[in-house]
Structure formats: structure tokens, C-alpha cells
């Protein structure tokens, strides 16, 4: 899509992939952090990681396996998170460690079987060997996420304000909530092989956290989070590919640094961002 400015095909695909992934995850990240279900997003991201590893080992479609695992966790946690009975901390902790254990088990095992290259893309991501179709599907994902937020903006804001009050006004909260979890699961799964399971969560939470240091205004957050994430990710992809550095880890470090700088210069000087 951007070939007219970036003639190098590999670099072009890398930049595009990082741009679309970061826009989708940043927009969803605003919802996740403002509704206060960061822990659900976190657990879903790692479950997708485990699902992808199992899928790759069994030679199943990796993305489908990741979506399935992430959705399974969403359906398991959805009702719990809905009731705000998030004293499920222990459950989340166990699920998280279990996901990591399963993922790392299969990835190490595949490495001993000589399938190391593919397996490590699950860990650290891979933006070098992308097909055009993959880039298109990521573009579609970014569009779907944005359209979802625009279409359900009313309902999403009401959910962010107060779930119970939203429900008591007659809003059909359930379809919106589960639709959102579904889109999160798909986004996580599609982003997984680009960014890697270990770093995905950085993309989900950091952009919203950076912007939150400067504005509480939701519209600003929905607009600025993807812009910030896009700029950082495109910069990371450029630098990484041209200098032959690992793209996703490099970009994740930049995210972290920008976040720290944002905290230092924040008019609010507050780090916590997950409380609703």
C-alpha cells in the first residue's frame, strides 16, 4: 500500500504491519484500560500466545488457534469480570503462568525439533517475512476496530463510566461487551506473529498509558493513542529493518522509554492508569 513512498518491499510491509497493528491495539487499549479490564486483556494475550504455540506444533493454522485460546479465556473471564468480582486475581495468575508454561514448552520443544525459526517468531515477532495478504488483513483489522469504536461509542462510554448504571439505563451491555472481547481476541491473534507473544501486552497498554499522562479526555485518548503508537511503531520498524535489529523488541523498548518520559513530563505525575 505504501510502496510509492517505501520502494523496498520488505521494509514497506514491515512498516505497514507495525502501523496497522499498533493502531488496532492502541484503540482497544484505551477501552481496556479505561473499563478497568487490563488484567483480562493481559491474560487473553498470553492465552493467545499458548494457543499459537500449540497450533504451530500441531501444524494447525496459528491464527485460528490463537483466536480460539484467547476467546476461551475471554469467555471464561467475561462473566467474572462483568460482575466486577475481580477477586479472580489468583485465577488470572494461574492462567497466565499456565499459558506461559504451555507456550514456552512447545516453543522449546519445536526448537529441539529444528523448527526454531518459526517458533521464535511467536516469542519475539517477525515483520520481515510477511505476505501482502497478511498486511491487508492487518489493515482490515485496524479498520474494523475503528469502526467498532465509532459505531458503539455511546455504549462504550457508558460502560467506561459505570457498568451497572449503563445496564440499568436499558443499554444492551452484553452484546457490546462480548463483541469487544471478540475483537480483542482477534486483534491479539493477528498481532501475535508480528509483535510476538512476549511483547504484545506492551502494545495493548502502553499507548493508552502514555496518552493518559496528558489527557483524561476520552476523545483525545482514542485519537492520540493510535497516533502515538503508530509513530513509535513505524519508527521502530524503519530503524529495526534498516539496521537489522529485532523490530518488535526495539519498538517495545522505545514504548517504555516514551512512557517514562511522559510520566516525567506529565502535568499529573501519576503512573497508575488502570484504575477506572
Amino acid at each position: 500500500m505504501l510502496e510509492f513512498i517505501i520502494p523496498n518491499n520488505i521494509l514497506c510491509h514491515a512498516v505497514e504491519a507495525m502501523l496497522f497493528v499498533s493502531v488496532a491495539t492502541a484503540v482497544l487499549g484505551v477501552i481496556i484500560t479505561r473499563i478497568g479490564i487490563s488484567s483480562v486483556g493481559f491474560t487473553m494475550a498470553h492465552a493467545a500466545f499458548a494457543g499459537a504455540a500449540i497450533g504451530m506444533f500441531l501444524a494447525l493454522p496459528v491464527t485460528i488457534a490463537a483466536i480460539a485460546a484467547s476467546l476461551a479465556v475471554a469467555l471464561l473471564l467475561g462473566p467474572l469480570s462483568e460482575k466486577a468480582k475481580l477477586s479472580v486475581d489468583a485465577t488470572l495468575g494461574v492462567l497466565f503462568s499456565l499459558s506461559m508454561a504451555v507456550a514456552i514448552f512447545f516453543i522449546s520443544y519445536m526448537q529441539t525439533l529444528g523448527q526454531g525459526f518459526h517458533a521464535s517468531s511467536l516469542l519475539y515477532g517477525d515483520v520481515i517475512s510477511l505476505y501482502r495478504e497478511e498486511v491487508y488483513s492487518l489493515a482490515l483489522l485496524a479498520v474494523i476496530v475503528i469502526v467498532f469504536v465509532i459505531l458503539f461509542y455511546k455504549e462504550i462510554t457508558a460502560l467506561i463510566f459505570h457498568r451497572k448504571i449503563a445496564e440499568s439505563t436499558g443499554i444492551r451491555v452484553k452484546p457490546v461487551y462480548y463483541g469487544m472481547l471478540f475483537i480483542i481476541a482477534v486483534s491479539i491473534a493477528l498481532s501475535l506473529t508480528i509483535i510476538g507473544g512476549l511483547l504484545l501486552y506492551v502494545w495493548l497498554v502502553t499507548p493508552a498509558a502514555i496518552v493518559y499522562q496528558f489527557s483524561y479526555n476520552l476523545r483525545h485518548m482514542f485519537f492520540l493513542a493510535p497516533v502515538v503508537a503508530g509513530v513509535i511503531s513505524v519508527g521502530g520498524a524503519f530503524t529495526g529493518v534498516t539496521c537489522s535489529l529485532p523490530v518488535a523488541p526495539l519498538t517495545a523498548v522505545v514504548f517504555g522509554v516514551v512512557f517514562l518520559v511522559a510520566v516525567l513530563f506529565s502535568p499529573k505525575r501519576r503512573i497508575s492508569n488502570s484504575k477506572n
Binding site: L151, F152, K154, E155, T157, A158, F161, I165, A166, T169, G170, I171, R172
Partner: peptide
């Protein structure tokens, strides 16, 4: 927001 439910999607 009190009217959101009434407005519908």
C-alpha cells in the same frame, strides 16, 4: 447517558 438505552444502537 440516561437516554442511551432508549436511543438504541
Amino acid at each position: 447517558m440516561g437516554r442511551y438505552g432508549k436511543m438504541g444502537f
